[in-house]
Design a protein around this nucleic acid. Structure first.
Lengths: 146, 146
DNA sequence: CTGCATGCAAATAGTTTGCATGACG
DNA sequence: CGTCATGCAAACTATTTGCATGCAG
């Protein structure tokens, strides 16, 4: 999505961060948000055009954008983190435990739940994370064949 | 909760796992479930009675009970995992970002959401995880003073 | 007694950091 | 041109694993 890319670049420029070719490449992938990539997969893609880039640089850019609230990090202790630059705010996820596919379902009722929580517990709620784990239709088919 | 402890021990015995003193100590702490402990905090507690126990043993017992579905693991990539043996099924959590306190709020509407998801996406849903992050009342007070 | 559990130490994986070199603005 | 970004390698942390010894059943 072009709008996301522009917004991310604007925010970087506004805070005087440099737009290097490597950063541009990483930001483009994150802005597209397709498939909720890992750092490793971003690294592999960027490497085709910038063979000298290091994973460290990808980590640094991803972390920078996370701090600017332009990327959502989905942390997984049992595997690599996934990143979403197209919807950088907390939202529900549907994760296939077979192939790792991540889908964004439509679930509107979360805002109501958050309101209910605030009055019930007195917490000042800053963020949330909702993950459903299951097997996607594609993997269900594969399993039936096997 | 005594009921949880008995159930965990029964399940271990039923599958011919040995009830060693170390295991008993770890299982007791998990069954109580108080505060959603880390492996490290379980280790420190057990060490008072069993000075020779190792973290590896705690990890092994926790992992075993997780596989028997008698402990819920809350994975945190930026910190240590937390464990809940009193409610070993997926449920919402409210986590203080200041002190790490974890509270179990009452939120019934999740089952409805899960049903909605299944018909919308075709996923076979196995589990979920819902975390709200915020600042608990205690830490809000402390911040005001500071 | 016999095999599973323990506990030490070493390995692992993902991520972060230090620092010398390079290039954006 | 000065400063920030890059990229290599080393550090770090939580967790897992290998293996010799010990103890529960």
């Amino acid at each position: 999505m072009q709008k996301r890319l522009d917004r991310m670049l604007d925010k970087l420029k506004a805070r005087d961060f440099r737009i290097t070719p490597q950063r541009m490449a990483v930001v483009k992938i994150l802005a597209a948000g397709y498939g909720h990539p890992t750092v490793e997969s971003i690294y592999e893609k960027v490497r085709k055009n910038f063979p000298t880039i290091s994973v460290a640089t990808v980590y640094k850019t991803v972390t920078l954008l996370k701090e600017l609230n332009e990327v959502l990090e989905l942390g997984f202790p049992q595997g690599s983190n996934r990143y979403d630059g197209s919807k950088p705010y907390p939202h529900p996820h549907l994760i296939c435990t077979e192939c790792g596919k991540i889908v964004d379902p439509d679930l509107a009722s979360l805002t109501d739940m958050t309101q209910e929580l605030i009055s019930d517990t007195g917490f000042h709620i800053v963020s949330h994370r909702l993950d459903f784990f299951g097997v996607c239709p594609d993997c269900q088919r594969k399993k039936r064949k096997a």
